[in-house]
Design a protein around this nucleic acid. Structure first.
Lengths: 116, 116
DNA sequence: CGTCTGTTTAGAGACCTGTCAACCTAAGCT
DNA sequence: AGCTTAGGTTGACAGGTCTCTAAACAGACG
């Protein structure tokens, strides 16, 4: 459907050594910066935290929207940014849309930050 | 000298549970988002990676500037952003300025991302 | 004082965040 | 089926923020 970042050659080990080990290449830096940028907004960070800590591993948008002071379209926009950064994924199930975290992506970022 | 973010009640454990454990409060989200935002630029991410992976744990600005295609003032600006985010610190030593990473801050972010 | 290193300031242009309005899909009802 | 209502996303636009450069500034050394 829409573009999504892929850092997850992680499996191959091609990506994501801790920063303490080696400096980043220009290309890697760009991909990773896009993911960090997605986390660089308080609303998105709270959204991700609600999704990630949700029971059952997923949460309905209808539960997210009322938790914030911004309008529905704004939440939808932030979710799209997180989606395109590859940090979450969502799908429609009947009337409602449900979102899940993508743990590998978050683990990749954590690894970069040097929790070796 | 200048303001700097402090998340590092980390020592007290007051902060920074993994997102999988609990959703973030509004205040925490704001502080953490500011740190992630600092990482949300390719140039800054590469700067941080060079600083963090430098031998001896620190690096001279004079070694950073020539590695990028942007002008000196721009590098200086990005370093300031990283400094104010609490991710690095630097001091003048004679003619040159040297920068070091602040590992606790990076570890705090990694922990948030759930590498429990 | 003159030079070299690095930071700060000021400003132009691009990008991001939030809102309103329009749209699409699914479900319920006659 | 057709009509209506509700949940979410998309598009267009205003206002603020970020990134970058050029020029002026400050600190260290000869």
């Amino acid at each position: 459907m829409s573009k999504q970042l892929v850092v997850l050659d992680a499996a191959t080990g091609a990506c994501c050594e801790p920063l303490t080990a080696a400096a980043l290449e220009s290309g890697q830096a760009e991909t990773l910066a896009a993911m960090f940028k997605a986390l660089g907004d308080p609303t998105r960070l709270r959204l991700l935290s609600m999704i990630t800590s949700a029971e059952g591993g997923e949460i309905c948008v209808c539960e997210l929207t009322p938790a914030f002071d911004v309008s529905g379209p704004t939440i939808s926009h932030h979710l799209k940014v997180l989606r395109e950064a590859g940090l979450i994924e969502g799908d429609r199930r009947g009337t409602w849309v449900w979102y899940r975290p993508m743990p590998e992506a978050m683990r990749a970022l954590a690894t970069i930050l040097g929790t070796a």
